[in-house]
Simulated assay, not measured.
Amino acid sequence: MARSSQSSSSRGPRHTNAQATVWYRKPFNLMTPEEGQRWLEGLRNQLVHKQQRERAYLDRRAVRGTHTPTDDAYEADQVLESELISLLDRLLEEARKGEQQP
């Protein structure tokens, strides 16, 4: 029996419907104080959620007794993320103080 040079798949042709998402953000130096504060708050919220997802992932793996060098990297990222969240908190605090001064 001769083999055809074409590969057939039981799943049919593969098509991807990938779409790119384009984000636009004003440069920080062109933002109003309110826009800058909202942007910093958004960054902080995203970072907190990222840290929570990673912590949950690490905790699930620990329960299963699974540990790899990637887990070590994620643990180190937890420390970095905490430091960045503290920095963002400080920046937001300073921005709010500046907003209250006449």
Rank of each mutant, 00 (worst) to 15 (best):
T32E: 11
R44H: 14
Q78K: 03
E75W: 02
A18M: 09
D59I: 01
A18F: 08
A76V: 00
H15E: 13
T21H: 09
V63K: 11
P102K: 00
E35I: 02
V48R: 12
Q100R: 11
G36Y: 05
T32H: 02
E83T: 03
L58A: 02
L87Y: 07
T16L: 07
D89L: 03
S8L: 10
R61W: 05
N45Q: 15
L80D: 02
T70L: 11
I85F: 04
P102D: 02
L40Q: 02
G65N: 03
Q6E: 13
E35W: 02
L80S: 09
N45Y: 06
I85V: 15
R38W: 08
T66A: 07
R64E: 06
T16P: 00
S4G: 09
T21C: 01
S86D: 13
P33T: 01
R55S: 09
H67R: 15
A73N: 02
E99I: 00
G65Y: 02
R25G: 07
N17L: 06
N29S: 12
N29Q: 11
Q52R: 04
R96S: 14
R53P: 00
R11A: 12
R53A: 12
R11F: 12
P33A: 03
N17C: 01
R3M: 09
A73R: 13
L47T: 10
G36C: 04
L88K: 00
L88T: 01
E81I: 00
R3S: 11
A2N: 06
R44F: 06
K26N: 07
E94F: 04
W39C: 06
